[in-house]
Computed example of a mutant assay.
Amino acid sequence: MPSFVVHRNGRPATTDDLAPLAFAGYAHFTALQVRGGRVRGLDLHLERLRSASVELFGRALPDERVRSFLRTAIEAGPADLSLTATVYSRPGEFTAADAGTEPDLLVRTGLPADGPSGPLALATVPYERVLPAVKHVGEVAKTYFLRQAARDGYDDAAFLDRRGRLSEGTIWNLAFWDGTTVVWPAADVLTGTTMSIVRRQLDRLGVPQDVRDVTPDDLPGLAGAVVMNSWTPGVPVHRIGSAPLPAAASFVGLLRRAYEAEPLAAV
């Protein structure tokens, strides 16, 4: 049987460690896939944890300590796994108190994931995340809108900002294809680590990219769309709202090639 772990600061978490976190909602995290004991985009995950910790707690754990906690959890499990690293502060939420110390890191491992095969149909929902640049926990709206979309016959939901622009999905970044250029939505979104990996590798491959407004009215003029997150660099989307989109297998293949060009590295 695979050995998966829940660690707090590099050691097995106890019931006393976990009980205060059962309903905690003031924390942030990063999620990643480990393959062969290695990960892609480690620098991006470390930067995400560091910057979000400074934003929420005013201080961050040193990168080397974070790496040691991640490494301990990875070495305790199988070569392929999913890992979630959550940073929190002991005073928790609903208080202005400051722990006065570095935040804690909870690391959880589990079965590896590759995401759905698609293609997906996405409902459109007017919604803007609070602190969109931070991957924070406790976002009830994302699950709520996912379930509402499923009830209405969709696979998931895509968000529209106050200007009517498509921004991101419930747990996904959005990317579009106009036939020659990869188009990223111009909106306040969480910049995903997979998104950042793909963008820098597309640059190295010489593939044109653009950041621009994408509204539902623009969809008929596009040649494809995908969602991506830590599971996958691209799940095809065949419909957003009432607008159908081409399958664009070549677009999905391009994104996968870009992602796989990022080397796997030891933690």
Rank of each mutant, 00 (worst) to 15 (best):
V237C: 02
Y154N: 10
V267D: 01
S250P: 00
A133F: 11
F4H: 14
H7F: 15
H45K: 13
E262V: 06
A186K: 12
N229M: 09
V134D: 09
G115D: 09
P20K: 08
T191N: 12
I240M: 12
P2T: 00
L174K: 15
P103F: 00
A157W: 04
F23S: 13
A22W: 04
A258P: 04
P112Q: 04
P12V: 08
D63V: 08
L105W: 03
V183L: 15
A187F: 12
V34P: 06
A121T: 13
G25C: 04
V214M: 11
T109F: 02
V107P: 04
E64D: 13
S117F: 04
A97N: 10
N173S: 10
R257E: 15
F69W: 13
P132H: 11
G164N: 08
H7L: 14
V214A: 09
L202V: 00
P263K: 10
G58M: 07
T232Y: 03
T124P: 02
T232S: 15
L81G: 01
K135D: 00
L105F: 06
P208F: 05
W177R: 11
T14P: 10
P246G: 03
T95M: 08
A24T: 10
G169Y: 15
N229E: 08
G100F: 05
V237L: 03
R67L: 14
G25N: 13
L219G: 10
D63W: 12
W184K: 02
T95D: 04
V198F: 05
S196N: 05
L56A: 01
T124K: 14
A266Y: 10
W184C: 00
D16N: 11
G179I: 11
R35Q: 14
S68V: 01
A248C: 01
A85W: 06
D152Q: 15
S230D: 07
E75P: 04
G221D: 14
R40P: 01
S250M: 05
A79I: 00
L166A: 05
V34H: 09
F159W: 14
Y144S: 09
A225D: 02
T84A: 12
D43E: 15
T124M: 14
P116W: 03
E139V: 15
V5M: 04
G41L: 06
F57G: 07
G37Y: 07
L255W: 07
S68D: 12
L42R: 15
H238C: 10
F69I: 10
A76I: 01
G115K: 07
T95V: 04
T14A: 12
R204L: 14
R212N: 03
G37L: 04
L120K: 09
P208C: 01
T101S: 13
R59H: 03
F23E: 13
L219H: 13
A73E: 10
D188E: 15
Y144R: 15
V235H: 10
L202R: 09
A97T: 12
A60F: 02
H238L: 08
R165C: 08
A150V: 14
W172I: 01
R163F: 02
V214F: 08
L106F: 03
H136K: 13
A258L: 06
V182L: 01
A27Q: 03
S89K: 03
R48D: 00
D218V: 02
E75I: 02
F57R: 11
T191E: 13
